[in-house]
Amino acid sequence: MRVPNFQLFAEWLQGIGIFIAGMIVGAAVFMAMYVENFDYLVQQNEILKEDNEQLKEQLENHNLVKNPTQLKAIDISIHNPPSYPDLDDLTITQLQKLAREELKFMIGQEIKRLEPEHIKRLFGKKVFALEDGKASYVVEINSIFIADTEMRIWLWANRYMPAS
């Protein structure tokens, strides 16, 4: 009985090995792209949830406050100077939510009684911890503008480094 030549099978095994290695590399690339897209979708979902909560709160405030001389809404923006590090969208959204909760006691107050300098001193420099608990930020008011029944606040936010 004759044993078949293994040289024929060696060429086939090389091709099959290259094909399987290609499948593994392709699966790894696909999973990396999938995870990246899924992380992006989760962040956008969180941002949209926060925006939805903010809009519901604004609608509730507009319905509760009937007097046109009272503050109905607080709009918060975070614009850092170039010397500060850039913040991602999810961090900005969470910091805006925390600052809005800190200042929401002013809704319903008489507009003529709200002094921007007094609000700046009252707010000061706050340290806000994000919901995930991984980072804290020092937030301070840069400027305030009050018009009609809305107050617009611009904040600066920088990473909090506790003194050791």
Score class of each variant (00 low, 15 high):
Asn67Arg: 11
Met23Ile: 13
Glu36Ser: 12
Ile18Pro: 04
Ile111Ser: 01
Asn63Ser: 10
Leu55Ser: 09
Ile20Leu: 13
Gln96Arg: 15
Leu90Ala: 11
Glu50Pro: 03
Gly15His: 09
Ile18His: 01
Ile76Phe: 01
Ala32His: 15
Asn80Asp: 01
Leu103Cys: 06
Gln58Trp: 02
Glu11Leu: 14
Ala99Pro: 02
Ile47Val: 08
Tyr40Pro: 10
Phe9Ser: 11
Gln70Tyr: 14
Lys56Met: 14
Pro68Cys: 06
Glu46Gly: 05
Asn61Leu: 01
Val29Tyr: 07
Ser83Met: 15
Gln44Ser: 07
His62Gly: 02
Gln54Ala: 14
Leu64Thr: 11
Leu98Gly: 00
Phe30Gln: 10
Ile20His: 06
Phe38Pro: 04
Ile74Trp: 01
Gln54Asp: 05
Phe105Glu: 07
Ala27Cys: 11
Lys104Ile: 06
Glu53Val: 07
Ile78Lys: 00
Phe105Cys: 08
Gln94Ala: 05
Arg100Glu: 07
Leu71Glu: 06
Leu8Tyr: 10
Ile78Gly: 00
Pro82Asp: 15
Gln44Pro: 00
Glu117Ser: 05
Val25Gln: 05
Ala27Phe: 08
Asp39Trp: 05
Glu115Tyr: 05
His62Thr: 07
Ala32Cys: 11
Tyr40Leu: 15
Gly17Thr: 12
Glu115Met: 02
Lys97Gln: 12
Val65Glu: 01
Ala73Val: 04
Leu87Gln: 01
Leu103Trp: 01
Glu102Cys: 06
Asn80Met: 05
Asn67Glu: 11
Lys66Trp: 12
Gly26Phe: 13
Lys56Phe: 09
Ile47Asn: 02
Pro85Gly: 09
Ala28Pro: 04
Ala73Gln: 09
Gln70Cys: 11
Glu102Trp: 06
Gln14Ser: 13
Pro81Val: 02
Phe38Thr: 15
Ile20Phe: 14
Gly108Pro: 03
Glu117Ala: 00
Glu53Asp: 15
Leu41Asn: 13
Leu98Val: 03
Gly22Tyr: 02
Ile111Leu: 01
Glu57Asp: 10
Glu46Lys: 11
Ser77Phe: 06
Gly15Tyr: 03
Asp89His: 12
Tyr34Val: 07
Glu115Trp: 03
Pro68Trp: 04
Ala32Trp: 11
Glu110Gly: 05
Gln44Gly: 05
Gly17Asp: 14
Ile76Tyr: 00
